[in-house]
Simulated assay, not measured.
Amino acid sequence: MTSLSVTQNVFHPNWTLPDNVGVAITTRAFGNLAVHVGDDPAAVLLRRRRLERELPLPHSVVWLQQRHTSNVLSWPFKTTIADAAYSSQPGSVCAVLTADCLPIFICSSDGKEIAAVHAGWRGLADGVLQNALKKFSTESSGLSVWIGPAIGPDAFEVGQDVFDAFVSNQFKTSHFFEPNGDKWLANLPGIAELICRQFGINEITQSDECTVSHSDLWYSWRNEKAAARFASIIWRK
């Protein structure tokens, strides 16, 4: 069962939030929002402006240059090279672009701290989610997490290098890998949830949306080599 509700071409997670925080996820029907994938830059910019008007957002989105790193920026940003954004400022907007990787939202119970995380397997293994969580001054018991549409555990076939990258770290993640011939099927949403629980967070909501099996809604690089990305946005009102 999905934890999403749709309004036009934007999804709103069925996730309990403070009144001063908003979240939204665009679908493929809204169109590509990434400028680095070969789309017409002018068309992308028009979609971005339309998105800011329709939500409406309190501030223009400062889009990250995502490179599968573990870097986390604090708003307002002095650079844009990172794979997660954190803010404790009113009127701020944090956003990530994905097409199989995990989009993750983090919010404090009082709505004063928010973050958006882009976590592919490499970023997740290298600690991007942990680094984002460390930005929060709120105790872990006062944080909630939403794990968005991404490639699911039945679709994400990986090699031994990915298995080794996870099982060699401090988290016990081997049970999130199922043998599949000489490959593995990896459960990235499950690993992300484990990391959050290791931090003492209990309020975790999974979208249960697979970008591969539900490619009518989401862009999926693995499924179709789609030169497009959808956006996951969280903001303080």
Rank of each mutant, 00 (worst) to 15 (best):
F136N: 02
P153Y: 10
S207W: 00
V61H: 05
A132G: 05
L143S: 08
A150Y: 06
G148W: 04
P189Q: 02
N202K: 14
A95H: 04
W15H: 10
I114Q: 02
V145Q: 06
G127Q: 06
K112E: 09
L194A: 08
D208C: 07
F177C: 04
P189R: 00
F166E: 02
A125G: 10
G91Y: 11
I233K: 05
P41C: 11
S60T: 09
S207E: 04
N32M: 00
Q170C: 10
F176N: 05
F199S: 04
L57H: 09
T69N: 06
D154N: 13
E209C: 06
I201F: 04
P90R: 12
I204Y: 06
T69H: 05
R47H: 13
S70G: 09
H214G: 08
S144D: 09
N180T: 03
S174V: 11
L217R: 06
P13E: 13
G159Q: 01
P76G: 12
S109K: 03
P76N: 14
Y86G: 00
L143R: 11
T27Q: 12
V212T: 09
V96N: 04
P153W: 04
N187D: 13
W235C: 02
E139M: 07
S168V: 12
L129W: 07
N169M: 05
G38R: 11
K78H: 12
F176Y: 15
G159V: 07
A165F: 02
V6T: 14
P18M: 13
D40Q: 08
Q160R: 15
Q170F: 10
L4G: 06
G38A: 12
V117H: 10
N71F: 07
S207Y: 03
S215M: 04
L188K: 06
L45D: 13
A82Q: 00
W75Q: 06
D126K: 09
G190C: 06
A116H: 01
T7G: 05
A84H: 01
V62Y: 03
E193C: 14
I234K: 00
D110R: 01
L185C: 11
C210A: 13
D40L: 08
E139D: 13
R222V: 13
G91W: 11
V93L: 10
E224Y: 05
V158P: 02
W146R: 03
N169H: 13
S109A: 09
D19A: 15
W184H: 11
D216K: 05
V72G: 00
W235E: 03
K112N: 14
I234C: 00
L188Y: 12
T16M: 08
V6H: 07
L73P: 03
G91D: 10
L102C: 09
I151L: 02
W121A: 09
A186Y: 09
N32D: 15
V10D: 01
Q170E: 14
L185Q: 10
A84D: 02
